[in-house]
């Protein structure tokens, strides 16, 4: 609002939807990194690691501290979800799901910060653009879902062997006489997983951010009535958004578990 007094709502939103990039790289090139997404996601990732690691290091089997109890509750919740879907060694899938859940949740939660707070703060340091929600960046969500895809492929090979997996790719579901058709079908199925996984999260977060921006636009609309509506709208959407960010983090985690446990199943 205050940062862009001359451009109106459209300009305000466009400004807020522009990523922070290093200035010496040409616009639109592959090597132009979204500094804001990377920074926020790394800060949150390190925060998650430190938080859980400090408590895990001191974890006792006796009476747990409140912090340990909280971490245990989160872990048990995630472990329960994994246990429901996947019947095998959870020593990798469990921590994977925990990482996904907490990290995605923290990144989504950046949406709950006032939409202008971080851009306003970075502007003081001369950085003109800053998007504070990494999961509203398609690079971020695809990075996670492609990693999940790689894990799915890896575990498919590991569980079924090279021959077994190839056999499954070409013969399921219609038998060996439809091999090319089966392969095409399985390829679509395989590739649709990361796309749906990441687009769902991205879409929700992007739209949520956009709604916050639209509501925030009311603040500079120049009328007390609209200003009041803006306050009410921001509050209501913010409360509703707590639900959305939790659900999206949960869905991302559950689908990750489901995809990887499906990779272990034989057809």
């Amino acid at each position: 609002m205050a940062s862009e007094p001359q451009g109106g709502l459209t300009e305000y939103i466009r400004h807020h939807l522009t990523h922070l990039k290093p200035p010496h790289v040409s616009e639109g090139g592959f090597w132009s990194v979204h500094v804001d997404s990377v920074t926020v996601s790394l800060v949150l990732g390190v925060l998650f690691c430190l938080w859980f690691w400090l408590l895990a290091r001191k974890a006792t089997a006796g009476v747990p501290s409140k912090g340990q109890a909280f971490v245990e509750i989160v872990l048990e919740f995630v472990d329960g979800q994994v246990k429901d879907v996947f019947h095998g060694d959870r020593r990798f899938l469990g921590p994977l799901a925990l990482t996904v859940f907490v990290w995605v949740f923290l990144m989504n939660a950046m949406d709950l910060l006032p939409v202008d707070l971080l851009p306003w703060a970075t502007e003081k340091f001369g950085l003109s653009h800053f998007r504070s929600v990494p999961t509203a960046d398609v690079n971020m969500t695809f990075a996670m879902s492609i990693t999940v895809l790689l894990l799915v492929i890896f575990y498919s090979f590991k569980a079924k062997g090279l021959g077994g997996y190839m056999h499954e790719l070409f013969t399921a579901p219609f038998g060996k006489w439809f091999a090319p058709f089966n392969f095409a079908l399985n390829l679509v199925e395989l590739l649709s997983k990361p796309v749906s996984l990441s687009m769902r999260l991205f879409g929700n977060m992007y739209a949520g951010e956009l709604v916050f921006m639209l509501i925030a636009g009311l603040f500079s609309a120049g009328s007390w009535l609209l200003y009041g509506m803006g306050i009410i709208g921001y509050t209501v959407w913010g409360i509703f958004h707590i639900l959305i960010i939790s659900i999206q983090a949960f869905i991302f985690m559950v689908l990750t578990i489901v995809y990887i446990s499906m990779a272990h199943d034989h057809h």
Partner: peptide, 18 residues
Amino acid sequence: NATLIGEMIAFAILIWFC
């Protein structure tokens, strides 16, 4: 852009750490 690759590496490191 390259953010994708960077984030994949970050994600992998987080998983490994966890």
